[in-house]
Design a protein around this nucleic acid. Structure first.
Length: 507
RNA sequence: GCCCCAUUCGUCUAGAGGCCCAGGACGUGGCCCUCUCAAGGCCAAAACAGGGGUUCGAUUCCCCUAUGGGGCACCA
């Protein structure tokens, strides 16, 4: 059922570089990486760029950056090389062509000369006759003369696999156990396209063989093509790897798999990212993302849900991978990310906070950031939360809140104005402008003027930060400094004075 | 339409015949703490899809139904 292959463990992640790394792809990569590391094996990165129509030259770079960000290091790959290279399929074309020809020569595959339009017509015809759509195998047994005739027309054939017409293909999947397919229902799948490029089916079998891949952990979407792959291994007479089909990560609502078109949404209806790059931009930590991903479709074994990748490597085991697909739980990611943020050393947090702040257009002062970091640390789910929470620290010019937001529940504008004045006076009289001294003074003041401390503090918070929700008041004022704090308090008092002085709106 | 895979609280999951009147976590609700917001602590509600078998005994094994997902390209 599991990894009883005697071969040294070699796994691979083989994305096609058609865009940025998909979060589901990262999970697949992670499982392969975890498995290889657990068995002291090798983890290979291979690029499946056999679709010229979808090729994106930027994608490979972005993809590797995403993997590195996550900390999934590969032992062999396009940039690091290795003894089984090249690791880019478009650089291995002659290999695929050679083995495709070998299959033809050994009667395991055949050239098929239809044009796309003809294939379309065949499909339509099959469908109209209520037969399974696909290819009707009309070129499966062409004579050499017939083939020559097509060649003479200048037609470029594809190479198709000669699928057995009867019997069944039974494949033992490491996660699902025996899976059986009726051969008669399978297609004569295209192995080599007319442009000389292989399809995934051919390319991955050839590569996995020559790269000596021992275990293929891939998304369950591939399961339907397993019989084709298995027959290919048989046709070549090569030892197949152990296949393990991973459960698919579905949208949060469980409807459909995560994809860029048809973007997934959380419970509140917010769009949640699909691409790893977007998670980076959104302020998620790699440790949190990996830990989160590891808990979807796999579990640690005891009741721990928070663990390091080293712990996961130690524990990783195919038998703990689920068979059922699962919905992506965004709230859980936020929770985990918050935990990882809280565990960060402050210096590290401060360093990480810089980018979202600068992206929001702020000029960031290092000293100030170091002081702010511990204040925001327990209040964030993502790094980006710093902008809303503490962005006011970095405004070039202070943006006061509207005056009507200053008075707290049960306080009149005049009361509030007076409280502000007195707070200013008391604060300016402080020997040291530390948060401890401030708090003592403000509590005393609250009692003296007969308002609840929380009400007074909230007034001051709105006055000094310009927002109702912010970092703790006294620490905040300490960072702002006495002059700036007093200035803002006076400004607020003046705002209120103006408000009171202005003619009262009739209702 | 055909094929494949699956089905435990809203969600992620534990459970591999009796330990389960089903455990953990997120989220939700309540309480506590509290200068806002958080964080933290405590408590609560919340699930074995349905029906047949097998068995002394099924969440666990088998079958059927239902539901969900995936796949049916010269894309991967």
């Amino acid at each position: 059922m599991t990894d009883n292959s005697p071969r040294p463990v070699r796994t691979r992640f083989a994305p096609s570089p058609t865009g940025s790394l998909h979060i589901g792809g990262l999970r697949t990569a992670m499982f392969n990486w975890l498995f290889a590391r657990h068995h002291n094996g090798r983890f290979i990165l291979r690029v499946e760029d056999t679709d010229q129509k979808r090729y994106d030259p930027q994608a490979l770079r972005i993809l590797m950056e995403g993997m590195r960000w996550a900390g999934l290091d590969w032992d062999e790959g396009p940039d690091v090389g290795g003894p089984y290279g090249p690791y880019i399929q478009s650089e291995r074309l002659t290999l695929y062509q050679k083995w495709a020809q070998w299959l033809v020569d050994n009667d395991k595959a055949y050239p098929s000369y239809e044009t796309p339009a003809e294939l379309e017509a065949i499909r339509k015809d099959l469908e109209s006759r209520k037969l399974p759509p696909g290819y009707n195998r009309q070129h499966r047994d062409l004579t050499p003369e017939q083939r020559a005739a097509f060649e003479a027309q200048g037609r470029k054939p594809v190479i198709r696999l000669k699928m057995p017409l009867e019997g069944e293909t039974i494949v033992n999947d490491a996660i699902h156990g025996d899976v059986r397919f009726e051969n008669a229902r399978q297609q004569d799948t295209v192995l080599l396209k007319s442009d000389g490029f292989p399809t995934y089916h051919l390319a991955h079998v050839v590569d996995d063989h020559f790269m000596e891949i021992s275990h293929v952990l891939r998304a369950a979407e591939w399961m339907p093509s397993v019989p084709v792959h298995w027959q290919l291994w048989q046709a070549f007479g090569w030892e197949p790897p152990v296949y393990a089909h991973l459960p698919v990560m579905l949208n949060p609502n469980g409807k459909g798999k995560m994809s860029k078109r048809n973007p997934p949404r959380d419970a509140k209806g917010n769009i949640i990212p699909v691409l790893v790059d977007d998670y980076i931009q959104a302020g998620y930590l790699p440790e949190a993302i990996l830990n989160f991903l590891a808990n979807i479709g796999w579990n640690f074994g005891d009741e721990r849900e928070i663990f390091t990748m080293n712990d996961a490597i130690e524990r990783f085991d195919l038998s703990r991978i689920n068979q059922a697909n699962s919905a992506f739980p965004p709230e859980k990611l936020d929770w985990l990310n918050g935990i990882y943020i809280r565990e960060l050393p402050v210096e590290r947090l401060a360093a990480l906070l810089r980018e979202p702040l600068e992206r929001a257009g702020f000029k960031v002062d290092d000293d100030r950031l170091m002081k702010i970091a511990p204040l925001v640390q327990i209040r964030m789910k993502t790094l980006n939360d710093v902008v809303e929470l503490a962005g006011f620290f970095f405004h070039d010019e202070f943006e006061p809140a509207p005056a009507d937001q200053l008075p707290q529940k049960g306080m009149t504008a005049e009361q509030t104005r007076a409280a502000l004045e007195q707070a200013g006076a008391a604060l300016s009289a402080l020997e040291n402008f530390t948060h401890e001294e401030q708090e003592a003074a403000m509590r005393a003041l609250a009692e003296r003027i007969g308002v609840k401390p929380s009400a007074l503090f909230n007034v001051l918070r709105v006055a000094t930060t310009g927002q109702a929700v912010a970092t703790p008041l006294f620490e905040t004022m300490e960072i702002l400094g006495r002059n700036e704090s007093l200035r803002r308090i006076q400004l607020a008092a003046a705002q209120l004075a103006a408000l009171i002085g202005s003619p009262v709106q009739p209702e």
